[in-house]
């Protein structure tokens, strides 16, 4: 057992957990942040993607010890109160989700993609960058549309800030 201290969605937390605990287990089982999902055992589906210190990582492939001291943002932490993050809004407006299970990981990955490309994205790039996230419902068509839409919205909202 170790005490792990980290910041999750802006709040400092300290939790006593077994060393073998994965970050995703900490989030779901100990902090009740169940928006982050587990869809595979082999680090491929991306349903568990969260941001650690601003970068999209697979929380199923990280021991809590590795995240000690880090700042974690989950799907529950990206809206500002009732105001959705532009990526969340774009997924809704473009019907970029069906069953919703892969969606949190998709959104967290997609935000990271837009950050890295500064909004300069095309369809082929989005498809390549989404290869670590598997969706079984949408056929990706509307997810790609949503990411491209959000890239524009995020550029505008960044310019406004």
């Amino acid at each position: 057992m170790s005490t792990v201290k980290l910041t999750v969605n802006g709040k400092a937390v300290a939790v006593d957990v077994e060393d073998r605990t994965l970050l995703v287990q900490l989030l779901r089982d100990h902090l009740n942040l169940t928006g982050t999902h587990v869809g595979c055992d082999t680090s491929q589906c991306g349903a568990c993607v969260v941001h650690m210190d601003g970068k999209a990582v697979k929380s199923c492939t990280m021991l809590v010890g590795q995240a000690d001291g880090a700042s974690i943002t989950t799907i529950e932490g990206i809206a500002k109160g009732d105001e959705l993050h532009p990526m969340q809004a774009a997924f809704r407006d473009n019907h970029g989700l069906q069953c919703g299970y892969c969606t949190p990981g998709m959104i967290m990955s997609a935000i990271d993609i837009v950050h890295r490309y500064g909004g300069q994205l095309d369809e082929a790039t989005v498809r390549h960058e989404l290869e670590g996230n598997i969706c079984r419902c949408t056929g990706y068509h509307n997810i790609v549309k949503a990411v491209l839409d959000a890239a524009g919205r995020m550029k505008v909202s960044q310019a406004a800030e």
């Binding site: 680090s43 990582v57 697979k58």
Partner: peptide, 9 residues
């Protein structure tokens, strides 16, 4: 190599 999340780690 890998995917974006893997490449960060």
């Amino acid at each position: 190599l890998g995917d974006p999340a893997v490449r960060y780690r």
